[in-house]
Design a protein around this nucleic acid. Structure first.
Lengths: 334, 334
DNA sequence: TTGAAAGCGCTAACAT
DNA sequence: ATGTTAGCGCTTTCAA
């Protein structure tokens, strides 16, 4: 493996000149530049990134803390992150945390260890110990998708409460009054906000919320499936089910069909996220489309803004969502 | 940020002793060890990974080249990679290549640039230029899932031909004779092997293959959907469709239902992969289960074997698959 | 515009 | 068992 010294020799210049030629070609004379580039070519020289990073105290890596990559929504967010990072010369270190705080703390340590310059956290948890970063310095973190209420860093999200309200209003407008909700994880702000939006809509329509219609879940199809099993036992069954993720909606529909019920004729089902499968579900899913890739791209931009201290930019970004009405929701049976 | 020298001072030892205490605690005296660890604690010392990596010429990063992370099958493979890498002290650099060779070449350059120690390639393409690595040295790469015929490195896969044959035999045993196939990308060895297995089964049953029943695809639900549109135009329609991925199978079923056809009563549909959604599809999908996480874990183990030169281990691993029969396949209409 | 030289934080060979 | 010391390959003053 050839290094900068070999190239310098070959070109008959100093190592400093080689470094400069590669980093700021415009400050060396054209003649020198040509010589150097020629030498780089013949030597097959590639700068040693470990050395560059070490010396310049920048790893140019972003650590992404994701609860689970095996979720098509997060996968899309990560795809957005990867693309944006690459475009700006950053690498992406993947950290599949399974939502465990212990893991998240460890991964956040990558910043202290200079393995990553900053992190993108896709869950509402601050993995930095209080004393982890120099006081006065901005935390090198962006919190996206599921966001802390009092995040100590920039955030990117949609207005979950409004989105949930919009979706619930759609259901109410169709004539539903017994609307169940299959929720995300108990403590998640996502769940709290969406339940709030759901309540907003019910109250505005003069419907008394019934907690018996609230089912716990965890965003997986399996959770949707199980929650419906519970709901089918209710003496008064819901006529519509609002699922906090498309994956749960798909699980829910599967269970309803097992029970011999038709969607949407017997029960309407709505999801959240608008994953690729939503339109191929039977029936195609009514859902709230989230800008998954945009979450990722935006988070990267904001994080790099912090890292390179190029203006602090907007610190709390709210991206638009969209209600997508397909065929899984309809008026209840008369 | 405190460094090793500060810790050495604090503990009243040399920097070498600090380094040793952290790397091989057993070769320093207990008394010294305590002093040092104490000092590490008070100083809040974290070794600078950039420096460690630079000096020891090991990044302890693995680059993963994945055609698209927005595919639940690959997402599972990556989850397996991440877990295994973490357990062995390696980081995972995610490289979403979209299957573009240009991108893959660039990412493979990370090894030359010492940003990654090796790569896991999930597509049948060798991204290393011939002269990229010292001759005599093993290529720091493992090729998994979709594997080159003459891979210059260890590989992990299933026997795709046998798996396709098994699945096709299942369809034939049910009584199908007009079996369509929705394929993966044209040039993929995966496609070639699975088509071969499909032909094997047909021939063994004395069925003449009909190329009009072979549809191109790309593993996405959309491709499955479109392929069925084509198939429905055939004068003699197939009674069964073998899709090379569950995602395509889901798209295919969606299109069949749109056309008013019932699965499996009118047409049987089988998939490949056994993604999480397969069992929640309507009807639940008959498919070939692939050990996705195991692919990832195994690939990591094999790559680290190369990197740390700890025995070369098996170089071409074939993992088991399993035919999972659910409800999307049945005997054809009489 | 270019070169000389210091040094980033750490590891490892060598010496004690 | 511990210390001394020479760099790893690069960037970046500072001087010419």
């Amino acid at each position: 493996m050839s290094n900068i010294r070999k190239v310098a020799e070959l070109a008959g210049v100093s190592v400093a000149t080689v470094s400069r030629t590669l980093k700021s070609p415009d400050i060396v004379s054209p003649a020198t530049r040509d010589k150097v580039l020629q030498a780089v070519e013949t030597a097959g020289y590639r700068p040693n990134r470990m050395a560059v990073q070490f010396r310049s105290r920048r790893s140019h890596n972003l650590a992404v803390l994701v609860p689970t990559i095996a979720n098509t929504f997060f996968a899309r967010v990560i795809a957005g992150i990867q693309q944006a990072a690459r475009e700006q010369g950053y690498g992406v270190l993947l950290c599949n945390t399974l939502g465990r705080e212990e893991e998240e703390l460890q991964y956040a340590g990558m910043v202290a260890a200079r393995q990553a310059d900053g992190i993108i956290q896709l869950r509402a948890f601050n993995p930095f110990p209080e004393d982890a970063v120099e006081p006065g310095q901005a935390l090198p973190m962006v919190n996206a998708c599921e966001v802390l209420d009092d995040a100590p860093c920039p955030t990117v999200k949609i207005d979950n409460r409004a989105a949930a309200r919009t979706l619930t209003e759609h259901l109410i407008a169709l004539g539903h009054r017994r609307i169940a909700m299959i929720q995300g994880p108990r403590r998640s702000p996502l769940t709290r906000d969406r339940v709030a939006g759901y309540r907003d809509a019910l109250e505005a329509a003069g419907i008394v919320p019934d907690d018996a219609l609230l089912c716990p879940g965890d965003f997986t199809p399996r959770a949707g499936h199980e929650a419906v099993t519970t709901l089918l036992d209710r003496t008064v069954r819901p006529t519509a089910i609002f699922c906090e993720s498309d994956e749960m909606a798909i699980g829910a529909i599967s269970r309803l069909k097992q029970a011999g019920l038709s969607v949407p004729d017997d029960v309407s089902v709505a999801g959240f996220d608008d994953i690729a499968f939503a339109r191929y579900s039977d029936p195609p899913l009514t859902t709230v489309a989230q800008p998954a890739e945009a979450f990722g791209r935006r988070a990267v931009d904001m994080l790099i803004d912090i890292l390179e201290a190029r203006g602090q930019g907007a610190s709390h970004v709210v991206l638009p969502y969209e209600l997508v009405i397909r065929d899984s929701t309809a008026a209840p049976r008369a």
